[in-house]
Computed example of a mutant assay.
Amino acid sequence: MTTLTEAPETPAARETPARRRRRVDRLPYLLLLPCLVIIGGLLLWPLGQVVAMSFYRLNNVRQLRGDREWPWVGLGNYTQILGDPFFLTVLRNTVLFAVANVVLTMILGTLVGLLLNRLGRKMATFVASCVMLAWATPALTGTIVWKWIFDDTSGLVTWLFNALPDGLSQGLFGRSDWTGYGWFNSPLLFFSILTLVVVWHSFPFIAVSVLAGLKSVPSELHEAARVDGAGPWRVFWRITFPLLRPVFGILIVLSTIWDFKVFTQQFVLAGGTQDRPTFMLSIYSYAEAFSPPPKYGLGAAIAVILTLILLVVTGLYVRMVLKQEDES
Score class of each variant (00 low, 15 high):
residue 239 I to W: 08
residue 321 V to F: 07
residue 191 F to K: 11
residue 178 W to M: 05
residue 200 W to P: 07
residue 31 L to Y: 12
residue 256 T to L: 15
residue 271 G to K: 07
residue 194 L to S: 10
residue 249 G to W: 04
residue 140 L to H: 02
residue 48 G to W: 02
residue 65 R to L: 14
residue 318 V to T: 14
residue 315 G to N: 06
residue 237 W to C: 12
residue 272 G to W: 11
residue 163 A to Y: 00
residue 50 V to R: 02
residue 18 A to S: 11
residue 315 G to L: 07
residue 66 G to E: 10
residue 318 V to S: 09
residue 211 L to C: 07
residue 306 L to F: 04
residue 96 L to C: 08
residue 317 Y to G: 10
residue 231 G to P: 02
residue 289 A to Y: 05
residue 123 M to L: 15
residue 156 L to Q: 03
residue 130 C to E: 00
residue 74 G to N: 04
residue 323 K to Y: 09
residue 323 K to T: 13
residue 276 R to S: 11
residue 125 T to F: 12
residue 125 T to L: 15
residue 267 F to P: 01
residue 73 V to N: 09
residue 253 V to I: 15
residue 17 P to Y: 04
residue 273 T to M: 13
residue 301 A to G: 08
residue 96 L to S: 14
residue 98 A to N: 08
residue 36 L to C: 10
residue 106 M to H: 03
residue 300 A to L: 02
residue 57 R to H: 09
residue 305 I to H: 01
residue 230 A to C: 13
residue 195 T to W: 00
residue 59 N to M: 05
residue 180 G to C: 07
residue 36 L to N: 06
residue 69 E to H: 12
residue 73 V to Y: 03
residue 250 I to H: 04
residue 205 F to S: 06
residue 65 R to S: 06
residue 183 W to F: 14
residue 230 A to Q: 06
residue 14 R to Y: 04
residue 302 I to Y: 08
residue 248 F to I: 06
residue 17 P to E: 06
residue 120 G to E: 05
residue 55 F to G: 02
residue 269 L to E: 02
residue 159 W to N: 09
residue 236 F to L: 11
residue 123 M to G: 01
residue 69 E to Y: 04
residue 328 S to H: 05
residue 116 L to R: 08
residue 227 V to H: 12
residue 209 S to P: 00
residue 95 V to W: 09
residue 295 K to P: 00
residue 290 F to G: 04
residue 196 L to H: 03
residue 77 N to A: 13
residue 251 L to P: 01
residue 162 N to G: 10
residue 182 G to K: 04
residue 283 I to T: 11
residue 209 S to A: 15
residue 257 I to D: 09
residue 251 L to W: 06
residue 300 A to I: 05
residue 228 D to G: 01
residue 138 P to T: 04
residue 263 F to H: 08
residue 83 G to Y: 05
residue 135 W to S: 00
residue 302 I to L: 13
residue 219 S to N: 12
residue 171 G to W: 14
residue 81 I to E: 02
residue 68 R to L: 15
residue 159 W to Q: 12
residue 217 V to H: 14
residue 163 A to W: 06
residue 61 V to Y: 14
residue 197 V to S: 03
residue 189 L to C: 02
residue 244 L to G: 08
residue 15 E to G: 02
residue 28 P to E: 08
residue 321 V to H: 09
residue 311 L to I: 05
residue 295 K to F: 07
residue 172 L to I: 10
residue 118 R to N: 13
residue 47 L to W: 03
residue 85 P to S: 08
residue 273 T to P: 10
residue 312 V to W: 05
residue 79 T to C: 11
residue 153 T to I: 05
residue 32 L to P: 09
residue 289 A to P: 10
residue 115 L to I: 07
residue 308 L to R: 00
residue 227 V to N: 13
